[in-house]
Design a protein around this nucleic acid. Structure first.
Lengths: 131, 131
DNA sequence: GTAATATATAACTAATCTAGTAAGTAATTA
DNA sequence: TAATTACTTACTAGATTAGTTATATATTAC
């Protein structure tokens, strides 16, 4: 019942980038150190953020990564789902598992609980995490 | 980010028992079949419910298990935490992981999201799941 | 009192997922 | 051309989960 660390790291990276007031690139290694993220993990996470179009990297001396999207437009939910794929607190919510999806009272509870959870993530943006 | 099946099965077992209008014991094997739970898994789950005092088993011919607690007083959260232990959607919430717990804005989001999730579970009882 | 029945207990296995490692590739600048 | 930095890919160790199997214990029927 835990979210993955990669998702947590991704949020941390984006928040760190958003906190750079100049939009100068910052080295991913520097980001890793500031946020206590294992350096080896940075590449694969940044690559995902990059493909999604939120982050841009420039290589070579003086290079680094920078945020190229308004941090207010990126929700925590967006980030989590980008890294982990769609979230289900229970397999029943994936659909196709069970016959009586419609009438199942337990399924309704899962659904309600999940909505409550995801709403918080949906309503929180990267910008909201800046101190 | 998924709850375990055992927790799901435990809820199903309790709900099935609660739906028996007479308080006659019903064979655990019968419960397993009705709720599509692998029969081999039943013993360990029932044992846990039994130790907790919600269920009582009687052995031998004509035996079975029965609910000995008001289903309205058992919340889904009680059951999940009995089976899985305390729930944390993120390790930060366990405490002792991070230095700046108090000031961490991300931690506040985890906390809020978890509260939203657990509230739903806390406010739903086994009795609520009866059709 | 013995056999059948049903729960209780405990140890084990296979499969999956997660976190992290490591090695090499590609682009940019000095 | 060498140094620097991001990008890509494959791999490994450990933990967790789901389920299996075997055995012990209590109760009833005969």
């Amino acid at each position: 019942m835990e979210l993955t660390r990669k998702a947590e790291y991704a949020i941390a990276i984006l928040t760190e980038l958003a906190s750079q007031d100049s939009n100068q690139p910052i080295q991913s290694r520097e980001v890793a150190q500031r946020r206590s993220i294992p350096e080896n993990l940075i590449p694969q996470i940044v690559a995902t953020l990059s493909k999604r179009g939120w982050v841009e990297g420039t290589r070579g001396v003086g290079g680094g990564i920078r945020l190229v999207t308004d941090p207010q437009s990126i929700s925590i939910l967006d980030v989590i789902e980008l890294i982990e794929g769609p979230i289900y607190i229970n397999r029943c919510l994936k659909g196709g598992v069970c016959q009586n999806e419609r009438s199942c009272s337990l399924r309704r509870v899962w659904s309600k609980a999940q909505d409550a959870l995801l709403s918080v993530f949906r309503e929180t943006s990267i910008a909201d995490l800046l101190d």
